[in-house]
């Protein structure tokens, strides 16, 4: 599917690697090599300050709200459209050209269109989140449904299953692992959409802070926000993975 590495667990090794990177960074920072590599300890101090004065929590809350407003509809609609495309050839033929094209299209180009439609409002961020995450969910769900074993379908039909029973008892559970993968990749994409959208409308959330500190040359603050965005993205991708494991135990 997409994003070969996006579906892997960042375990102990990952933490070690990050710790190693941070340590090296601190050393280089202390050596005062470049303005753009300030010591990590300095960034941490500023980060703590932004946390305490409510800047980061406020921005993060606004970001998360847009994320939820965009990703929840993308997930629900994406799974529904994916199921329909997987099950009915007519629906698939009508839509798969669009889905495949938009899946790899530079959707960031559409953000100005969204601004034209909605005005400079946080709705644009939610819409960007939706756009970035919707298609991955659709594609993975479709793939999952289509990969359903033929013999399972035959078996259920032989025992008298109608369309509804086939859907609920065969297609949906068969597709579940793929659906969950789609939702996980979708969540990763959603965070990317959130950052892009917020940076482009530059009005609310962590993205706006990135632009602001970038424009005002506040390097330490900029790093603190970048760190927060990365942390948020990691937490969300971890949460999605935990949910996936809990739901698809039978593998």
């Amino acid at each position: 599917m997409t994003g070969a590495g996006a579906d892997r667990q960042f375990g102990v090794a990952g933490l070690g690697a990050v710790a190693g990177l941070l340590a090296a960074w601190e050393i280089v920072g202390r050596l005062d090599v470049s303005l753009f590599v300030p010591p990590v300890s300095g960034i941490a101090r500023v980060w703590w300050g932004l946390l305490a004065d409510g800047t980061l929590p406020g921005a993060a809350a606004s970001s998360l709200l847009s994320l939820v407003k965009g990703f929840v509809p993308a997930a629900v609609l994406g799974v529904a459209v994916g199921l329909a495309m997987g099950r009915f050839a007519t629906v698939r033929l009508l839509l798969d050209g669009w889905v495949n094209a938009l899946m790899s299209a530079p959707l960031s180009a559409l953000v100005p269109v969204l601004i034209a439609l909605f005005g400079v409002r946080d709705t644009v961020v939610a819409a960007t989140v939706f756009m970035f995450s919707f298609f991955v969910v659709v594609v993975n769900t479709t793939t999952g449904v289509r990969a359903t074993e033929r013999s399972l379908v035959d078996m259920a039909r032989l025992f008298g299953a109608g369309e509804l029973a086939l859907f609920g008892r065969i297609y949906l559970p068969s597709a579940l692992p793929a659906v969950m993968l789609g939702l996980r990749l979708g969540a990763v994409q959603a965070v990317k959409g959130m950052v892009v959208g917020e940076m482009l409308i530059s009005l609310v959330g962590l993205g706006e802070r990135l632009i602001y500190y970038g424009n005002t040359f506040l390097i330490l603050e900029l790093y603190a926000v970048i760190g927060s965005v990365l942390l948020l993205a990691l937490l969300i991708s971890q949460a999605a993975q935990t949910l996936d494991r809990a739901l698809v135990r039978w593998r």
Partner: peptide, 22 residues
């Protein structure tokens, strides 16, 4: 691969202001 994985999963757009500054 750990670093590459991170770069794939993370919103790299956040690095743009830094790139512009540099």
């Amino acid at each position: 691969r750990i670093y590459v994985d991170l770069l794939i999963a993370l919103p790299t757009a956040a690095l743009i202001p830094l790139v512009i500054l540099s």
